[in-house]
Amino acid sequence: MARGSTLPAPRRGIRGAIAYRGGEGMVAWAFHRISGIAVSAFLTLHVVSIFLVGANPEFYDSLHLFYASAPGKVAEVLLGAALLYHALNGTRIVVMDLWPALTAYHRQLWRIVWVTFFTLGLPGAYIILSRIWETAK
């Protein structure tokens, strides 16, 4: 058998973890992992800040000013994009895992993820970002 026909052994460490080794689920998997970690990081900050609503409302309000700023609105859109992709792709995974017969349609499911992502995401991003120039008026 030709040597090049086998996949290289996974390398250790971060380089190994993110190296491209092909396979069509690669993009779906990488985005799912990155978005899952990003949303978990936000969730940690979010729960702590909501805790302050009871413990220290003035401090909460001062932190919350970020949501009114332009960088805050951009961050909101990025959070929404990560959550929306993760939710859509996650549902694709759950559908195939709980109803394996549907795995035959994985290409269609993958296409539905992206069509839905942009159909909902682009108008959504516009609504949030438009508040930047609306409040500036």
């Binding site: 302050l52 609503v53 409302p57 003035e58 909460y60 309000d61 919350h64 000013l65 949501y67 009114a68 805050g72 909101e76 959070l79 929404g80 959550l83 929306l84 939710a87 959504g124 609504i127 949030i128 508040r131 409040t135």
Partner: peptide, 20 residues
């Protein structure tokens, strides 16, 4: 989670959501 995001970012502008 998607309903939560919709309520806190679309139905209401997130910036008005003070502690009060």
């Amino acid at each position: 989670a998607l309903a939560h995001y919709t309520v806190t970012h679309f139905v209401y502008d997130s910036s008005i959501q003070t502690a009060e």
